[in-house]
C-alpha cells in the first residue's frame, strides 16, 4: 500500500532528493512513499541517498518512456 506519492517530474538533482526527503520526513515509520521521476540520474541517486538515510528501497521501476517510480519504505 502506498501512503504518499510525490510527483517529481521536471525536477533535477539535488532537488529530486531534497523533495523526496521532505516528503518522507512527514511520514510514520513503516509507511510507504512512491516517488515519480523523469530525471535519469535521480533514479540512481535518490534510492541510494534514501538508503543512506536509513530507509528501505522496495522497488525501482521504469514505468514509461523516460519515467520511473521508486518505492521507499520509511
Amino acid at each position: 500500500m502506498i501512503n504518499k506519492k510525490v510527483d517529481l517530474t521536471g525536477e533535477v538533482c539535488p532537488y529530486t532528493f531534497v523533495k523526496s526527503k521532505l516528503a518522507i520526513e512527514k511520514m510514520k515509520k513503516g509507511e510507504v512513499l512512491e516517488i515519480v521521476l523523469d530525471y535519469k540520474e535521480a533514479v540512481e541517486n535518490v534510492p541510494e541517498s534514501m538508503e543512506n538515510h536509513g530507509h528501505k528501497v522496495e522497488e525501482v521501476e521504469k514505468t514509461g518512456n523516460n519515467k520511473w517510480k521508486v518505492i521507499i519504505k520509511k
Binding site: P14, F17, V18, K21, L22, E25, S49, H53, G54
Partner: peptide, 8 residues
C-alpha cells in the same frame, strides 16, 4: 534539508 540531523 538533506542533513539527517537537521532536515525539513
Amino acid at each position: 534539508i538533506v542533513l539527517s540531523e537537521l532536515g525539513g
